[in-house]
Design a protein around this nucleic acid. Structure first.
Lengths: 169, 169
DNA sequence: TGCAACTGTAACTATATTTGTTACAGACGA
DNA sequence: TCGTCTGTAACAAATATAGTTACAGTTGCA
């Protein structure tokens, strides 16, 4: 399916800000936690700002912070801000219009794919950024230790979500 | 999100076979309806055969047909046969393990993404290939006309699913 | 038996999309 | 005015999907 990691990264970024409270974070700081380039983060922050999820300020004391309380930001808001297309795509090239199946399979599939999208959105609408922060909590307080709590290395139900155990470098 | 069209194509292919009844279809015929290369179809047929959704036969009178009745093949079966990964991915490179958020955001996200996957699977499990064929029916009988019934040009709720109106060549 | 018509598959190439990088203009506080 | 930010353009790298060519092996049939 080749999904992007944009949603995962966006949630990560906003989670950092939720925990930073009102303190604006610099793209460089965020990039360090996400483990990517600061420009990638800034690009994403622009999209999040377009959707009114964060506010950024330029200048020497600049940075970005949440535009509203974490409990008022759902994962659906985040998803819609950074993932434009739906879950599936139709054919890359349109099917043969001279074939009775080809000519209207797209219509049938669209209905199905809309249902799928709605289901996804339903799940995402039910969780807020605050919920994410809470679920994260268990490992905090004993700041910056290197050891990971065993439960923190959860595995997906299904397979390869990339990154899982050991990454590629 | 950059989803693939594999699911759409697979449903298309199996729909053709459902309508062909027991008559085996040649990859060339299928490719013509899907509007792609026969090898692309044969590759997909191999995957579908691995999942026991179709049976193929080599030789001069060969071809492929459904391995069981259309009412016994769900869209979930098809999805699982051709789309390996879940709907979303985690970070391409693992986040910074020295950051309290980075170290276990993956675990929280995994839970969410599992929920999303389950929701998608739930929707797909509720429709069979037979249902798809039925929904297709309205336009048949008056074979091979070029005009499309107005209702057949349905649009997605959201935007660009590719292919929509005019394609790219 | 030999041919023609298939499938299965390997090995590429082409195309698209996402991610990462470098560079720099402009904003802004001190 | 200077240093430190953001915003953004332009491009390179990485990845994944789709399309193409080529060919070995299978099978029905004359």
């Amino acid at each position: 399916m080749s999904t992007s990691s944009r949603f995962a990264v966006a949630v990560h970024v906003l989670t950092l800000m939720a925990r930073a409270d009102e303190e604006p974070l610099k793209s460089e700081q965020v990039a360090e936690s996400v483990n990517t380039n600061a420009v990638v983060i800034r690009r994403m922050l622009c999209e999040l700002a377009d959707s009114n999820l964060v506010v950024s300020q330029t200048g020497s004391t600049g940075g970005s912070k949440l535009a509203r309380l974490p409990e008022r930001i759902t994962l659906l808001d985040i998803y819609q801000a950074v993932e434009s297309r739906g879950v599936f795509s139709l054919h890359r090239h349109p099917p043969n219009p001279d074939c009775p199946v080809g000519v209207n399979i797209g219509s049938v599939l669209n209905d199905v794919l809309d249902e799928v999208d709605s289901a996804v959105e339903g799940v995402l609408a039910n969780m807020t950024l605050k919920d994410v922060v809470s679920r994260l909590k268990p490992c905090v307080s004993t700041a910056n230790r290197k050891t990971v709590t065993p439960a923190a290395n959860g595995k997906r139900k299904n397979l390869s979500r990339v990154q899982s155990v050991s990454a590629r470098n």
